[in-house]
Computed example of a mutant assay.
Amino acid sequence: MSAPGRARFVSLDMFRGATIFLMIVVNTAGPGAAPFAQLSHAPWFGFTLADLIFPTFLFAVGNAMSFALRPDLAARAFLTRVAKRAALIFLLGFLMFWYPFVAPGPDGGFVAKSLGDARIPGVLQRIALCYLLAAPIARYCSPRAVLVICAALLIGYWLILLGFSPAGQAYAPLGNIGTTIDLTLFGRDHLYRKMGGFDPEGLLGTLPATVNVLAGFLVGRRVQRAGNHARSVAGIAFAGAGSIALPLLWSPWFPIGKRLWTGPFALLTIGIDMLLLAGFVWAIEVRGVAVGRRFLTILGRNPLAIYIFSELLVVTLQLVPVPPYGGLYDWIGIAVFQTIAPGPVGSLACAICYALVCWTFGWWLDRRGWLLKV
């Protein structure tokens, strides 16, 4: 835990803050009714607003990396720091899924939850692995080399799926080589439970997801070198439009899908994020727009802490039984918000209010000048 020191990139903080707010809204949809379709992930192939959130956060990680990398740091110290940060983020993700560490026992009490069925992959775990891969590439490779590596990761991932999966199973949830690797290394009990053995944050998908981080790094480096002016923003927006066009050409052979994190999905989300970030930079840095600055900056300064808080708080609320609804968050969503606004509107209102509670936690951290870093 540390206090902020040097000046931060305001539009990046706001960009990251908007991402965290939407991530919480999507992850904690109010119970009692199905959320709006765009706030639910596509079942397999396809694309929704909810699918954009995680790759946008990875893009923001890379963008922040372009400002945080210290070229004066010795190679051994740099690699040690990267490894420690990645290990800590991975551990936090694992502990977050294991929380609350106890489960109801047969006698009405509580017993310790077994590690034998704790999920190993996860959102923070993927962030950790992507950071571990991307940071050395960002430091030691030229921008042109980074682009070549990005192309190699996307095409290589595609060829691995086609070349090592059983015939006709390259894009199937349980038949692709990525699922085989996860089942072999972790076992079914340590993977995501809702898809029969397929884990959307599996190991092989780390390769294309790393491209989202590297793209964010390149865009951040571009802003630093070219400056925060209209021409720089136009260049980012133009490149973003090109990144959106490529997956539309590729998708007939490799469909767009978040769960498999296909190459076209990575490129599509990178293109959208470039356009969004260009908009933030233009509005905040070029035009000086101040609307929403304080609100989003509070979220963007402590995204990891606020995300973990949002995940742990909703689990804690659900530990409080409220018959016949289930847990306390179920009662809030059904008895309160579904009564006021039945259907997806009530679900969204509940999620937004919950996100505002998490914002309050971020405000509390910010008021004390605390930046939680790993």
Rank of each mutant, 00 (worst) to 15 (best):
I89L: 15
G242K: 02
V219P: 05
R193W: 07
V61M: 14
V26L: 05
A134H: 00
L246M: 14
R85E: 08
E201I: 04
C150A: 06
E285H: 12
G271R: 01
M23E: 05
G122M: 09
G17P: 01
S165A: 12
G187D: 01
V286Y: 08
G178P: 14
V320N: 02
S40P: 01
A230M: 10
A283C: 09
F280C: 06
F198D: 04
V111A: 11
G227V: 13
A215W: 00
A215L: 03
F110G: 03
G122P: 00
M195T: 14
P104C: 10
G216R: 00
V102L: 08
W158I: 09
G292R: 02
A283H: 13
A50Q: 01
L214F: 03
L299P: 02
G178I: 02
R119L: 13
V286I: 13
L132C: 03
R231A: 15
N228Y: 13
F309E: 03
A34M: 07
F97T: 12
F67N: 02
Y329V: 06
N302C: 13
A83H: 11
G279D: 09
Q338Y: 09
R293V: 07
L267S: 01
D117M: 00
F47K: 00
I298W: 05
I155N: 06
F45D: 12
C350L: 04
L22P: 03
